[in-house]
Nucleic acid binder design. Structure first.
Lengths: 143, 143
DNA sequence: GTCGATGTTTAGCCCATGCTAAATTTGCGG
DNA sequence: CCGCAAATTTAGCATGGGCTAAACATCGAC
C-alpha cells in the first residue's frame, strides 16, 4: 500500500513542476538547436514541438520575461547564462533518465518518449538512485 | 547521447498526458475518499489537493462532462463505471511506480512525492519493466 | 421553525498554453 | 530597387486550472 502522507503537499509540487516543465523543455530545445545549427529561430522550435509559431513566440516571450532567454525583434533566440545553466541541468537529467530506462530494459523508442515525460518529476534523490543503477548495471565489457 | 527522434511526437504525447493527469488524480482521490469515508464531497478534494473548493467544483464538472463522475447539486461526488476503471488503473500504476522507487532505494517520502509526478508519464512497457524489477528485487526474506 | 455553520454554486477575475487570421518585417532572387 | 516568400508579430479566441467574493442550499442546534 502507498504510504499515507499529505497529498496537498505533493500535488502542489506536481503543479509547480508543470509551471516550469515547458520552460525547461524550451531551454533544452533552444540549446540543442543552437548546438546543431548555430542559431535558433522560432520556426525551429515550432517544428520541434509540433506547435504553431505563434505559440512559440509567446512562450519564448515568457522565457525572456523570466530571464532564461533573450531575443531581438525578428532576431534569433538565445539563452541567457541562467537559461544555459537550466539547459545543462535539464540535459544531464534527461540523459540520466533516458539511460536509466534503457538499463531497465525498455526499448529506445519508449525510453525516449517516457524520459521526456518523466524527467521533470524526478527529484535529486531519485536521480541519484537512477545514476547508481546505471553505474551498477553497466558492466565493463558492455559497449 | 539521447537517441535522435521526432520530438514533436513525444511532446505531443506529453501535452496530451497533461490533459488527463488532473482527471486521473481526481478520480484516484475520489475513489480513495469514498473507500475511506463512504462518500466524497468537494471539500474533501479541496483539502486533499490544497486548492479552493471552487476549483474542485469546476474540475469535477469537467469530470462529469467527460463521463468520469456524476453528482447532483449539493450532493456527494461519485465515480461512473468509466471513472472507476480509470481509478483502478491509476491506483495500480501508482503503486507499481511507488514500490519501484522504493526498490530502487529512495526514501518513502521521496517515493511518495516522485511517484505522483511520474505515474502519469509511464508507458505500459516501462510499467512492465518496473514490475519486473520489483519482482526481481523482492527477496523472500524481505518484510 | 429559525439561525448559524458549513458546504456548494455562481460571477468574475488571472495566467498559461494552444489556435487562426492578418499585418508586418526580413531577406533573397531577379 | 521590387517583389515575393518566409518568418515574425499582433489581434483575437478557446480551454484548463487557479483565485476571491458573494449568493444560495443544507443541516444540525436550539
Amino acid at each position: 500500500m502507498v504510504k499515507s502522507h499529505d497529498h496537498s503537499q505533493s500535488h502542489r509540487r506536481v503543479r509547480a513542476d508543470h509551471a516550469t516543465e515547458l520552460a525547461e523543455d524550451y531551454v533544452e530545445a533552444i540549446d540543442d538547436i543552437c548546438r546543431e545549427s548555430g542559431s535558433c529561430r522560432a520556426v525551429d522550435l515550432a517544428r520541434r514541438f509540433g506547435v504553431s509559431n505563434v505559440t512559440v513566440t509567446r512562450t519564448v516571450s515568457r522565457l525572456v520575461r523570466d530571464g532564461y532567454a533573450q531575443t531581438e525583434p525578428y532576431g534569433p533566440i538565445e539563452l541567457t547564462p541562467k537559461g544555459k545553466r537550466v539547459a545543462e541541468h535539464a540535459r544531464a537529467r534527461h540523459q540520466i533518465v533516458y539511460r536509466f530506462l534503457l538499463s531497465l530494459g525498455v526499448s529506445e523508442k519508449t525510453a525516449s518518449v517516457d524520459s521526456e515525460g518523466i524527467e521533470h518529476h524526478v527529484s535529486r534523490e531519485t536521480l541519484h538512485a537512477m545514476q547508481r543503477f546505471i553505474d551498477h548495471t553497466a558492466r565493463p565489457s558492455d559497449g
